[in-house]
Amino acid sequence: MATKKQEQQPIDAYLASVKDPVARKTLGALRQQLRKLLPGATETISYRMPAFKVDGDVVAGFAFFKSHCGYYPFSGGVVPALKPELEGYATSKSGVTFLPDEPLPAKLVKRLVQARLAELAPGGKKPAAAKKKALITERVTDSAVKEATGRDWKAWMRALDAAGAAELNHKELVALVAREVESGWWQQSISVAYEQARGKRVVGETATTGFQVGVVRTLPMTAPELWDLLTKQAERWLGPGAKLKFEPGKGYEVPKRRGAPGVRGELRVVKPGERLRMTWQPDSWTKPATLQLTLESKARGAALHVHMEKLPDAKAREAMREHWSKILANIAKD
Rank of each mutant, 00 (worst) to 15 (best):
residue 168 L to R: 07
residue 221 M to Y: 10
residue 174 V to D: 05
residue 17 S to P: 00
residue 325 S to T: 15
residue 115 A to D: 01
residue 298 K to V: 00
residue 87 E to V: 01
residue 250 K to C: 10
residue 305 H to N: 04
residue 1 M to F: 14
residue 81 A to T: 13
residue 301 G to T: 01
residue 215 V to A: 00
residue 22 V to D: 09
residue 158 R to E: 14
residue 56 G to P: 03
residue 208 T to N: 15
residue 327 I to H: 01
residue 217 R to C: 07
residue 285 W to N: 10
residue 214 G to T: 03
residue 111 R to D: 10
residue 131 K to L: 13
residue 39 P to T: 02
residue 104 L to Q: 10
residue 252 Y to A: 03
residue 185 W to D: 08
residue 135 L to I: 00
residue 305 H to I: 02
residue 277 R to Q: 12
residue 213 V to G: 13
residue 275 R to W: 00
residue 75 S to Y: 10
residue 140 V to L: 11
residue 24 R to N: 06
residue 28 G to M: 03
residue 82 L to F: 08
residue 234 A to D: 00
residue 155 A to N: 05
residue 317 R to G: 00
residue 44 T to D: 13
residue 243 K to R: 11
residue 64 F to N: 11
residue 327 I to K: 04
residue 80 P to N: 12
residue 26 T to W: 07
residue 315 K to V: 13
residue 236 R to P: 07
residue 133 K to F: 11
residue 143 S to Y: 07
residue 292 Q to T: 13
residue 252 Y to K: 01
residue 204 G to L: 04
residue 303 A to S: 09
residue 334 D to M: 09
residue 325 S to I: 03
residue 265 G to L: 06
residue 149 T to E: 08
residue 119 E to A: 04
residue 150 G to C: 02
residue 226 L to P: 09
residue 127 P to I: 01
residue 229 L to A: 12
residue 216 V to Y: 00
residue 256 K to D: 10
residue 293 L to W: 04
residue 44 T to V: 14
residue 97 T to P: 10
residue 46 S to D: 06
residue 95 G to E: 10
residue 308 M to W: 02
residue 205 E to K: 10
residue 187 Q to W: 12
residue 173 L to D: 08
residue 221 M to H: 07
residue 297 S to L: 01
residue 302 A to Q: 03
residue 195 E to I: 00
residue 200 K to E: 08
residue 269 V to F: 05
residue 333 K to H: 06
residue 239 G to M: 04
residue 242 A to Q: 00
residue 203 V to L: 10
residue 47 Y to D: 05
residue 100 P to G: 15
residue 49 M to S: 04
residue 80 P to H: 02
residue 56 G to T: 13
residue 174 V to C: 12
residue 233 Q to V: 01
residue 220 P to V: 06
residue 2 A to M: 11
residue 246 F to D: 02
residue 35 R to F: 06
residue 8 Q to A: 15
residue 287 K to D: 09
residue 279 T to A: 02
residue 30 L to G: 12
residue 293 L to D: 05
residue 274 E to H: 03
residue 154 K to D: 14
residue 280 W to C: 03
residue 155 A to S: 10
residue 152 D to L: 09
residue 151 R to L: 09
residue 181 V to E: 06
residue 258 R to N: 13
residue 325 S to C: 07
residue 219 L to E: 01
residue 120 L to T: 05
residue 59 V to E: 05
residue 148 A to E: 06
residue 165 A to H: 05
residue 123 G to K: 00
residue 184 G to I: 02
residue 313 D to R: 07
residue 47 Y to K: 11
residue 266 E to F: 01
residue 132 K to D: 12
residue 186 W to T: 06
residue 38 L to Y: 07
residue 34 L to H: 02
residue 188 Q to T: 15
residue 173 L to T: 12
residue 194 Y to Q: 08
residue 278 M to L: 14
residue 181 V to F: 04
residue 161 D to K: 14
residue 175 A to V: 04
residue 269 V to Q: 01
residue 11 I to H: 04
